[in-house]
Amino acid sequence: MGNVTFKQNPVTLVGSELKVGDQAPDFTVVSNEMNDVSLNDYKGNVKLISVVPSIDTGVCSEQTKRFNEEADKIDNVQILTISMDLPFAQTRWCAANGIKKLDTLSDHRDGDFGEKYGVLIKELRLLSRSIFVVDSNDKITYVEYVEEVTNHPDYDAALKAAGQAK
């Protein structure tokens, strides 16, 4: 995988890099209601998975707000934001920021998503900023591992890929 940095310092990502055409690995994360959620819960839908280190920080907050705003513009796409934040923190942040058009999910319990998608930062136990678009057959159609974790992803490319996925 390319070199990923956090504040210009190299970090180690646990797991394997996923590529376009790969079958999306199933995973288990925790919903804001403290229920287990898996990729299978979204079966048959196109998924745009927005991965952030912590929803309560600047770039992560902007990323989540941007995808929430764009949700109405892309039909038949379920947007998921996954971070290591506790579900309680995600719920509080979403309420304070009017986030209602996407699902925030927590990988805090065991890092299952992070390891299976190759985005778990070993040194920080945070998820590396990334975007995955998964079609209705659970094939990956778009991947972006953001090289510098504190930078924004390519929103336009991700949204275009989600809009084109079937």
Rank of each mutant, 00 (worst) to 15 (best):
S83N: 10
L159P: 06
V37W: 07
V37Y: 07
K101C: 03
F88H: 11
L39K: 08
T104C: 15
K139I: 03
A89W: 01
I55H: 09
S50T: 12
V134C: 02
A95E: 14
H152F: 15
P10H: 01
G98Y: 06
K47T: 11
D56R: 09
F113N: 04
A95Q: 13
D103I: 00
N3L: 12
A95G: 05
Q8H: 07
D85G: 10
S61K: 08
S128D: 00
T141V: 15
N32A: 12
A162E: 11
N151C: 12
V37R: 10
A157Q: 13
S83G: 09
L120A: 06
T91P: 04
T104Q: 11
E115S: 09
L127Y: 04
G15Y: 03
A95K: 15
I99R: 02
S38C: 04
K19S: 02
I131A: 02
D22H: 03
L159I: 14
V52M: 07
Y42M: 04
L13F: 00
G163E: 11
A96D: 14
L102Q: 13
G98C: 04
I82M: 06
V20A: 01
S83Q: 11
V146K: 05
T81L: 06
L120W: 13
L102E: 11
E123V: 09
P153K: 11
R92Y: 02
V20E: 06
P53G: 06
T150A: 13
I74H: 14
K7Q: 09
Y117E: 02
E144Y: 09
K116I: 02
D41H: 05
N137E: 14
F27N: 05
F113E: 02
S16M: 01
M84F: 13
G111C: 03
Y145C: 00
I82C: 06
A71E: 13
E62H: 14
N76K: 15
T81A: 15
E115F: 08
G118M: 01
K43L: 08
L105C: 05
D85R: 11
F88P: 08
S61H: 13
N97L: 01
P153V: 03
E17W: 00
T81D: 14
D36Y: 14
A24M: 01
T5P: 00
A161I: 11
S128H: 07
K47S: 07
W93V: 04
G111L: 02
R109F: 12
L39C: 03
D56S: 13
S106E: 01
L120S: 09
V29Q: 09
D36G: 08
K43M: 06
K116P: 04
D107Y: 02
S128V: 03
F27G: 03
N3S: 04
D110N: 15
D156V: 12
S31Q: 10
T12P: 00
G44T: 03
N151D: 15
T5S: 02
V133R: 00
I82S: 07
K19M: 01
T12Q: 05
K43I: 04
R125H: 12
G98L: 03
P87S: 14
D56M: 10
V14E: 08
V143L: 05
I82Q: 05
Q63F: 07
V4I: 10
A161Q: 04
K65A: 12
T12G: 01
E147W: 05
D103V: 01
A24K: 02
N35W: 10
R66T: 15
L126E: 12
T81F: 01
S130A: 15
L48I: 10
V29E: 03
G163L: 11
G58M: 09
